[in-house]
């Protein structure tokens, strides 16, 4: 109990000098990023996630370059039959537009949040989450279709087996991010509706937006390098 009666300063002085200096250097109210702390932390998370997906896409490049069997043509693998003709990559194109639109509605939700327009902010957040859900649904359809056609992480009927492992890993991890994002957005939307941000400000909507735009950003590269290359 004696410790509690000591002031913070007395306790600091009782520390060995080297430890006191070390603690002082790390705690002397220094701040590098003069933004909302939640925003800085979300950015740190996003940078680390960029490395995860960057490593996945690099692994995909290495797998594709070292494959001795021909790489399956994504335009044919992901084609959809419409009537009598076969449209290449149709589902993937629709998924891309859905995700881009969800990014647009997200940006508008952030704007309405900062304008303290609760109803509209919650409306656009819900719209974003629904578009995200649509995306996940179409991805589930795509996976089901490919699995029925015999695509596995270790083999497929159209060529290099590395195609399956790259595809399921990269799109699976991205789909997981979208699913988590939908839940995240639903929580934020309900808090906006409840008025939970009236006092503390609407930064949390923008922070959720950063995550959502990042998910869209990753899809830009998956769409380009996995589906179109």
């Amino acid at each position: 109990m004696a410790q509690q009666t000591q002031s913070l300063e007395e306790r600091a002085l009782a520390l060995p000098r080297w430890l006191r200096d070390l603690v002082a250097d790390w705690s002397s109210d220094q701040q590098t990023f003069k933004v909302n702390w939640g925003k800085a932390m979300m950015w740190i998370f996003i940078v680390s996630d960029i490395f995860v997906f960057g490593s996945f896409l690099s692994a995909y490049a290495a797998a594709r370059l070292s494959a001795t069997l021909p790489w399956p043509d994504p335009a044919k693998v992901f084609a959809l039959h419409i009537g009598e003709s076969e449209v290449p990559l149709l589902l993937i194109a629709i998924m891309t537009f859905v995700l881009i639109s969800s990014s647009g509605t997200m940006a508008i939700a952030v704007k309405y949040g900062y304008e303290r327009n609760r109803a509209k902010a919650a409306l656009f957040l819900t719209l974003t989450a629904l578009l995200g859900l649509t995306f996940v649904g179409m991805q589930a359809f795509e996976w089901t279709k490919l699995i029925h056609e015999g695509f596995r992480p270790w083999a497929n009927p159209m060529g290099a087996p590395q195609f399956g492992s790259s595809f399921f890993m990269i799109t699976g991890f991205h789909g997981l991010h979208v699913t988590a994002g939908v839940i995240y957005l639903a929580v934020i939307a309900s808090q906006v509706l409840r008025g939970a941000y009236e006092k503390i400000g609407y930064q949390r909507v923008e922070i959720a937006g950063l995550y959502w735009h990042f998910v869209d950003l990753v899809w830009v590269f998956i769409f380009a390098f996995f589906y179109l290359f």
């Binding site: 950015w43 490395f51 960057g54 690099s58 692994a59 490049a61 290495a62 797998a63 370059l65 070292s66």
Partner: peptide, 22 residues
Amino acid sequence: YAILLPPLLILALTAFVMAEGG
């Protein structure tokens, strides 16, 4: 700068593994 500079390292990783892939 903290956001945009570190991801450039991925380009180095990609270059290395592409050479290795070949």
